[in-house]
Write a protein that binds this DNA or RNA. Structure first.
Length: 263
DNA sequence: CTCAGTGTTCAGTG
DNA sequence: TCACTGAACACTGA
């Protein structure tokens, strides 16, 4: 379930392991998610010899920058991940593996194959990233902007939180976690939120993202009070505080929330 | 065997 | 034009 914190953690991994390194070799899987408009031979031909100079991320999308124009764009979909490893120790379902000049490898894997790897001249102006709103971790969202976007809107706030044009990087569990910690019902219409509630929403969002990134998106280290730990599985579970969790479909996605607490 | 879940895009409806 | 819904994508695992 890669959302913003996981992708930021992988970006930092790439930053740490790969910047300053020269790509010696490339292994590309015969798979649509690494091909489509970019035939696999292109990545195999374009990348070797390049030096990785930096990394970038916006929402759930990340990319590598080189000593020449062009970016390697990575999207993880629902089951992708990035790992650094020694030769011969690569993960299963590898789709793209980069051999670095220190002998280590950086490998993108994606067992469920919903995701995307592409070579773009400029990732920032590519179709997927150009469509995104601001990244709520990189630049805390302005209450003015959100209030303007919410004004007059009847859509439930849960659905708005998943809108990547407004909150790039927020996924299903983070949206539920934010509403739980901000004591807001997922059904509330955006246009009905008070100024104060919008402030609380944005502060809570930023706090959750910052905490998740601070523990490298390792859920074992999320605070015990988070809804995250008890939200999985459709049985009528209770939170760590003993509150009843309700499961409903809102905006086409399963929403976990606590009616006695969120209004 | 069935079906939910995970993120994004696209077709369809109102 | 906008707002929203639902399907499709591929696969795992309950």
């Amino acid at each position: 379930m890669p959302e913003l914190p996981e992708v930021e953690t992988w970006r930092r991994l790439a930053e740490r392991e790969a910047t300053g390194r020269i790509i010696r070799g490339v292994q590309v899987a015969e798979d649509r998610i690494v091909m489509d408009e970019t035939p696999p031979d292109d990545l195999g031909r374009l990348l070797p010899g390049r030096t990785i100079l930096g990394t970038g991320r916006r929402g759930k999308h990340m990319w590598l920058e080189f000593d020449a124009p062009g970016h390697l764009y990575l999207h993880f979909g629902m089951s992708g991940s990035l790992t650094a490893h020694e030769p011969g120790e690569g993960p299963s379902h590898a789709k793209l593996a980069l051999e670095l000049d220190n002998g280590k490898w950086l490998t993108y894997r994606n067992p469920r194959r919903i995701g995307k790897v592409r070579y773009y001249e400029n990732a920032l102006t590519s179709k997927p990233i150009a469509a995104l709103g601001p990244d709520p971790l990189a630049e805390p969202l302005s209450p003015d902007e959100i209030a303007k976007a919410f004004a007059g809107k009847k859509r439930p706030v849960k659905s708005a939180l998943l809108d990547q044009r407004l909150f790039a990087g927020v996924g299903n569990w983070i949206a539920d976690e934010v509403l739980y910690q901000a004591n807001l019902s997922p059904h509330r219409a955006c246009g009905d939120l008070s100024r104060q509630e919008i402030q609380t929403l944005l502060r809570t969002l930023h706090r959750i993202l910052a905490k998740a990134v601070a523990v490298s998106a390792d859920d074992a280290h999320f605070p015990k009070t988070w809804l995250f730990h008890t939200r999985w599985g459709k049985q009528a579970e209770k939170t760590g505080r003993g509150e009843i969790i309700r499961f409903e479909t809102i905006g086409g996605r399963t929403c976990a929330w606590v009616p006695e607490r969120q209004s």
